[in-house]
Nucleic acid binder design. Structure first.
Length: 951
RNA sequence: GGACCGGUAGUCUAGCGGUGAGGAUGCCGCGCUUACAACGCGGAGGUCGGCGGUUCGAAUCCGCCCCGGUCCA
């Protein structure tokens, strides 16, 4: 039976009970067993656990000392599935909360970065689900056209197959095979994380419905004039032989050689123009040499003609203000087909005509203008050959190393060849303006806000988007071209004859669409658009989009454009950008670097909850931060703490105890710690709720972590033990038990969005109301009373405990001994509180008896002392120990410095006159308090000196 | 070349005009205590990147510089 868990078979209902309907009979915690942890190294501990386990058996069902994350998580994931807990209702009642999971690329498997985003989304979704919203989280997958084709091409190359040589159909088959493998892995990874997506709504960007949406959008935009076909300068990837968009180009600093080449005068006069270039192989495409009109060095040259080196062609020298006179010798060769700047200059000079292309699709020299010896050479070879040739002919004046930026294709790493080419484009200006206006108006909010500026700048500088790709894998461009009259036919259904000439000879456009041309429709296409589906009408617009900053422009901005344009609404109300994870050596984790571990391995090793928590705490989810053993261990320790809190709580819950439906009602006679922990709980509930709703998951997790560890475990539980065990009478025991159960149960609810599996397990071990914690109501934040007075009082008490413990440690009081102690309170209020909780202080500080000294009474003999803000503290010394003079003197010095600072401020006229009165008063009080404490230290020092001088 | 973001103990962070600059982790000391050694208690550790300025008062606001990162050309 070892390791087998039974979770109340038949207790989990298929459906969430309709709201307002009384819930079914309360369930009792099931009996469960679990594998115990690995054998522990120290025998002493084993003994203790044996004892504790015996104790548990007497008081009811026990949780094992350690939890087995793997079996526990698998079990609850199965329960959630069985209960269809995350299936969004087709006809939601009340408010909805919806979002799409950024569909991961089928290119590979998920990285830890995906886990981060998914965790943030799940925190939001689970919270809003518990709040009672009808939630829909749509999972999906992106066909990632070019990226996937590159991966498959690489895999085939390893088998010695050239992708380009495969027939189109066969190529698509290969890619489909790849997709099938990776889709499974990606789903497995997502499931392992326990993310509450609605798998029944799963979509793929290349399924039939996405194809329809894509086609619809293209046809519509073509009709509106927002899509056009044109001959323009594009980024050409010569390795993949396709155009790519501006965003798919990355710039790198590289050092190459700058050549100074003489273009001889065409009329044979000696000399010529000195032209600097890093690309001598493009000389064959030159149509002119340009200089700046104000450049006096070249005034006489303008209008003359020079011979293009290595050719017999002559070209004019022209003047253009676009030339930088400081570059090289101030003269630039103009190659309009292969450089954007040159192209722009060319367009300003109608006297020039467009030359033929000198490169083929693979960037090898070709065409009528290229001399025979250069025909067929690739860029590298041609550059080398041209340099040699120039040198040989004496036209190479000099060469020097030159640092400049080189454009490379993101996918293939090949140097991008700017090239004039006929492609399909989307007109972006109007779309971008609508988005900018929407974001400015607050229709969409970006979190963290600091990314606004980056976002707007890009929208302002936006260029038209090249959407056609000369590859296999993608949605076909829905255009047919008439072979007879050349007319483009753009229609939803493939046409049979040309509408203008009637010809039936039509050729489908061989190109496919950029993958983002489908992805940008995701928030509504994933909900069924353009069909008027129930999901679309009820769950669109979505509430939030969570993703990495790296696709802010690729995807997020474009989704906003398409959302506004096609649905008339922003696709989501909030955008949240997560940070990037860094590995142990501080490098960013990325697919590219291959330094992200497989999430599935990490989850198997540590458990999904541990991984999730380590991703949100302590490093902010919206900033780059480390992921590795440190954060993981931290999270694991915290979860163990929660587990053990449950083990502690359970024995105090008598069989038949009802679930905590309301906060315990505690009057002023109830133990102070109970009122205190309720108040602290309330503040935590408020903070957690507020933080989640303001997209600050880390702040919420931090608040929970601090509350659980410091307030609940370290303080409340320790203080309340006596009462819980019944040593303080039955009413006190009842109060403590009710309070503990309430606070712990509610804490599990607050923790659930972060660590769903563990909390689900523990919640079921306690009295609870409902079938699944995942569907339980989120705690109302005003359920428990806030009691600021008690919080202040407890602070004083905890301070006293801390000072006494500190004294014990510093005076070398043996751990097992319980010495007498004294406090001389600094005021009546402190005295009142300390007197009221003398017993608590004694137990917690391990002193006995604790007496409060009145003002003027002498300090007891043989004690160690400290002067704390709340008063003087004394603990009997174990034996004769070294004088405390030294530490007291150190303390005095510190206080004296502070006092000096305070006095300096108070004697500053500007401060007294201009600072707000309450700040001045505060400073005065502080100075008085410090003076008093120093006076008392001085008294001690005097007494000490006289006593050590004595016998 | 143009911008943007960040720089707080060994590490990660909170604070964003008035605090004795919080917390986590790591480190050191002590371990009594049947929830927990994956733990408890205590401690040490900081010129808040540097220099100027504004202010009665600056980690916090402004300017310049240095370092790290990112985006755009």
């Amino acid at each position: 039976m070892d390791g087998v868990h039974r979770v109340g078979a038949g207790r989990v209902h298929r459906r969430r009970p309709a709201r307002g309907v009384p819930r079914g009979e309360r369930t009792r915690p099931g009996v469960r067993s679990a594998r115990h942890g690995a054998p522990r190294p120290r025998p002493a501990r084993d003994l203790r656990h044996l004892r504790s386990r015996e104790g548990r058996l007497l008081s009811g069902p026990a949780l094992p000392p350690r939890f087995d994350a793997r079996s526990l998580e698998a079990r609850w994931q199965a329960e959630w599935d069985r209960g269809a807990a995350f299936r969004a209702p087709a006809r939601p009642e009340g408010r909805t909360y919806s979002l799409v999971l950024p569909p991961p690329n089928v290119t590979g498997v998920l990285t830890m970065g995906h886990m981060l985003g998914d965790t943030v989304m799940d925190v939001l979704v689970r919270h809003y689900r518990m709040v009672g919203r009808s939630t829909l989280w749509v999972p999906g997958l992106d066909h990632a056209g070019l990226a996937t084709q590159v991966e498959v091409r690489r895999r085939l190359a390893k088998q010695g197959i050239r992708f380009e040589e495969l027939p189109r159909e066969r190529a698509v088959q290969e890619i489909e095979a790849w997709r099938a493998e990776h889709a499974t892995r990606i789903e497995e990874q997502t499931r392992a994380g326990g993310f509450s997506v609605d798998w029944s709504r799963f979509r793929y960007t290349k399924d039939e419905r996405s194809a329809r949406a894509t086609r619809e959008v293209f046809v519509r935009m073509y009709g509106e004039g927002l899509i056009y076909r044109g001959e323009r300068m594009v980024n050409w990837d010569p390795r993949l032989r396709t155009a790519i968009s501006d965003l798919e180009v990355k710039h790198f600093e590289e050092t190459t050689e700058l050549l100074y080449v003489r273009y001889p005068w065409a009329d044979g006069t000696p000399g010529g123009l000195e032209v600097a270039t890093v690309r001598p192989e493009t000389i064959f495409g030159d149509v002119a040499v340009a200089v700046h009109p104000d450049d006096t060095r070249h005034h006489s040259a303008v209008g003359r003609t020079v011979r293009v080196p290595m050719t017999e062609r002559s070209v004019p020298v022209i003047a253009d203000a676009g030339i930088d006179p400081a570059f090289g010798a101030g003269a630039l060769k103009i190659t309009p087909r292969h450089d954007l700047v040159d192209y722009e200059i060319f367009q300003r000079h109608p006297e020039l005509s467009m030359p033929p292309d000198i490169f083929d699709d693979g960037a090898c020299l070709t065409g009528p203008w290229v001399p025979a010896p250069f025909q067929g050479l690739d860029v590298e070879a041609a550059r080398e050959r041209a340099t040699e040739e120039l040198e040989r002919s004496g036209l190479l004046l000099r060469r020097e190393p030159y640092r400049h930026t080189v454009a490379r294709s993101e996918r293939s790493d090949a140097a991008v060849e700017p090239r004039i080419s006929k492609q399909w484009f989307v007109r972006m200006r109007g779309l971008a303006d609508r988005v900018a206006a929407g974001v400015r108006a607050g229709e969409i909010r970006i979190h963290p806000e600091r990314w606004d500026a980056t976002f707007f700048r890009w929208l302002e500088e936006i260029q038209d988007w090249c959407i056609s790709r000369q590859i296999v894998w993608g949605h076909p461009i829905p255009v047919d071209r008439c072979r007879r009259c050349g007319q483009d036919v753009v229609a939803l259904e493939p046409p049979t004859r040309c509408p203008s000439c009637g010809s039936t000879e039509l050729d489908a456009d061989p190109d496919v669409l950029d993958t983002w041309f489908t992805s940008w429709l995701w928030p509504f296409a994933a909900l069924g658009w353009p069909e008027p589906t129930e999901d679309f009408s009820r769950y669109y617009p979505t509430n939030v989009l969570v993703t990495g900053r790296d696709i802010m422009f690729f995807w997020v901005a474009r989704m906003m454009m398409s959302g506004y344009h096609f649905t008339g609404q922003p696709p989501f109300a909030d955008v949240y950008f997560t940070g990037m994870l860094r590995d142990e050596s501080g490098r960013r984790m990325s697919k590219h670097l291959g330094n992200s571990p497989d999430p599935l391995d990490v989850i198997r090793a540590h458990g999904a909850d541990t991984v999730r928590f380590s991703l949100v705490f302590p490093n902010p989810t919206d900033e780059d931060g480390p992921f590795g053993p440190g954060p993981l261990e931290n999270a694991r320790n915290f979860l163990t703490k929660v587990w053990n809190l449950a083990r502690f709580t359970l024995p105090y819950v008598a069989p038949g105890t009802p679930p905590p439906s309301v906060a315990p009602v505690l009057d002023a006679t109830s133990a102070r710690e109970n009122r205190w922990i309720l108040s602290r709980y309330r503040r935590t509930a408020e903070e957690v709720t507020e933080a989640i709703r303001s997209f600050a998951p880390t702040r919420a997790a931090t608040a929970l972590h601090a509350f659980v560890r410091h307030d609940l475990a370290d303080r409340y539980v320790e203080i309340a033990k006596d009462a819980l065990l019944g040593r303080r009478g039955e009413p006190a025991q009842r109060d403590a038990r009710t309070t503990l159960l309430f606070v712990f149960e509610r804490t599990l609810k607050l923790l659930h969005p972060f660590v769903p599996h563990l909390t689900e397990e523990l919640w079921h071990a306690l009295p609870h109301d409902g079938d699944l914690l995942a569907l339980a109501p989120w705690p109302a934040t005003d359920e428990a009373p806030a009691d600021p007075e008690v919080e202040v009082e407890m602070e004083t008490i905890l301070e006293a405990i801390r000072w006494l413990r500190n004294l014990r440690a510093e005076e070398g009081v043996p751990a097992e001994s319980i010495p007498p102690a004294w406090i001389r309170p600094s005021g009546p209020e402190v005295a009142r509180v300390l007197r009221a909780e003398q017993g608590m202080i004694e137990r917690m500080a391990r002193v006995h008896p604790l007496d409060l000294l009145e003002e003027g009474k002498p300090q007891p003999p043989g004690v160690g002392s400290r002067v704390a803000p709340l008063g003087e503290c004394y603990v009997a010394r174990p034996t004769a120990v070294p004088s405390e003079t030294e530490s007291l003197a150190r303390e005095r010095e510190k206080l004296a410095q502070l006092l000096e600072k305070a006095r300096a401020r108070l004697s500053d006229e500007g401060f007294v006159r201009r600072a707000p009165p309450e700040v001045v008063r505060e400073a005065e009080t502080k100075a008085e308090e410090l003076t008093e404490r120093i006076r008392r230290i001085d008294e001690h020092l005097k007494a000490d000196a006289s006593s050590s001088a004595g016998p």
